[in-house]
Simulated scan of single mutants.
Amino acid sequence: MSLAGTDVTAVVREVQVTLDATDPRALAGFWRAVLGYADDEPPAGFDTWEAALEAWGVPPEERGRAWALHDPTGSGPRLFFQRVPEAKTTKNRVHLDVRAAPGLSGEARMAALEAECERLVALGGSRLRRVEADGADEGIIVMADPEGNEFCLD
């Protein structure tokens, strides 16, 4: 698609990353631990999400259909987890790169990535493969969250 000759005014937009899940709250718990994010607070006037959902008449079987996290520093995107009936079946076309070794290179970088990989496996993630540096790019570790969504330790 070409935008040449088109008058386009760029507007900076905030983004939210949405992840499909069979158990949104559990998957959010994994990503909360990975990223240091926090659960979104319940709406004003409610002490808990459960109290809000009860007041709004949401049936108990529907109360686990979504969960959200945010970066407590305000710099990262909000993560929204939504229940879907089907399991993941193919490779992600979009994935997260978790910056676990910024500023490091060589063996120090890979050692930091390996340490973070061990921590995330203990939380329920899966190691898929290690990709070695090739001269143009530094090495990474490809992982999957508990529901199979791929991400990279970078």
Rank of each mutant, 00 (worst) to 15 (best):
V131T: 10
W49K: 06
T48M: 04
P102N: 02
D137R: 15
A4Q: 12
A101L: 01
G36R: 07
E107K: 11
R78T: 10
A136Q: 12
L27N: 09
T90M: 08
V98Y: 10
L79N: 03
L128T: 11
L128I: 08
L123N: 01
A136N: 11
G148P: 04
Q16K: 10
H70Y: 05
G29V: 12
S126M: 06
D7M: 13
G64C: 01
F80K: 10
V12L: 06
S75P: 03
D71N: 00
M1T: 13
A111E: 14
T9E: 15
E147Y: 09
V15G: 10
R78F: 00
V17L: 15
E14N: 13
D23Q: 13
P102A: 04
P146M: 02
P60M: 03
P42N: 05
G36Y: 04
L27E: 09
R119S: 05
S2R: 06
D134Y: 00
L104K: 10
L120G: 02
F46D: 02
G64W: 04
A38F: 14
V34M: 09
W56L: 11
N149R: 13
A111W: 07
G76W: 05
R93N: 08
A66I: 01
E150W: 10
L153F: 02
V58Q: 06
P102M: 07
E132A: 04
T90E: 15
G57A: 00
E14A: 14
P60D: 08
A10Y: 13
E150T: 11
R93V: 12
A55R: 07
E50R: 14
R109H: 00
R119L: 02
L79P: 00
V34P: 09
R130V: 11
G103I: 04
S2G: 14
R93C: 03
E118A: 11
P42E: 08
E118N: 07
V12Y: 09
A33L: 13
D40R: 12
A55T: 07
G64Y: 04
A133V: 01
G125W: 04
A100M: 05
T18E: 15
P42K: 08
E132W: 05
A112E: 06
R93H: 05
P42A: 07
P59M: 01
G36N: 08
E132P: 05
